[in-house]
Design a binder for these strands. Structure first.
Lengths: 133, 133
DNA sequence: CTGAATGCAAAGACTTTGCATCAGC
DNA sequence: GCTGATGCAAAGTCTTTGCATTCAG
């Protein structure tokens, strides 16, 4: 079968370690290899890849969905709402949590990229000095 | 001080148990009481309320952010990607998970509404019979 | 008066869709 | 030829912004 050339190029680009790419960033990234590619093709490709479980889709609070290859291993993120630092969470602890939910509610969790927002250690220390609001 | 009349009306509407309202739904809902209200006012109001921790904002996968009053108690949701059923998660178990993350990473989680996507029990049973894809 | 909230309209960002074309089987 | 992928352009949806006006203190 055909398996879409663009799909493969996108997947390859995402696997190269470029994490958390928005559709627009993917678009820009692969234009080196497929100059004539169209944004809508990128969207359609990303949708296919996500549907097939090849990539994860998540909202990092930037206004646009971001995509990431799953083949590099599943992990999750903490995002600092102040400095926008991104901390990677090991899947182990999340999986444990997910397992208990799955059992308790007989609900099979599909979410493969958890993003939690908050304040990182650095910023919390800063905030303590400058009381806000 | 003024505290924005629209803010209060929105908050009241959200507290009345109407959960998971999109900005548009909020807009429609309060038009009964403030006929001339403008969508942009609703956005600005919701932003204020969220910023002040009065309401939670989350992406339920519907394409638009949804808003919910926090005063009714914090809870979280499981959303079935198949039948779109929404299952409420007690905060206890989530809080335990969050606590361990907070300690391990010295990261203060602000996310006050967790949404996990997956397949509910009913749909999983159905899927077993009709092998998909 | 002053600062904040609101209305209005316009723009902006992100995404989807219809249709014609093209490639592979 | 048939099916699915792609390009192109257009529209759609959700949200933000600038500016003038209005309101409370």
């Amino acid at each position: 079968m055909r398996t879409s050339s663009v799909d493969l190029i996108i997947l390859e680009a995402l696997e190269k370690g470029h994490a958390h790419l928005s559709s627009h960033e993917v678009y820009e990234l692969i234009r080196d290899r497929v100059p004539a590619v169209n944004p809508s093709t990128v969207y359609r490709s990303l949708e296919r890849l996500a549907h097939n479980g090849k990539i994860s889709v998540s909202d990092m609070g930037t206004g646009a969905e971001v995509y990431e290859s799953i083949s590099n291993g599943i992990h999750h993120h903490l995002v600092c709402q102040n400095c926008h630092r991104v901390i990677t969470l090991e899947d182990d602890e999340v999986r444990t949590f997910f397992s208990s939910i799955q059992q308790k509610y007989s609900f099979q969790i599909v979410t493969n990229h958890l993003v939690l927002f908050g304040i990182c250690e650095n910023c919390r220390n800063k905030d303590e000095s400058s009381a806000e609001e």
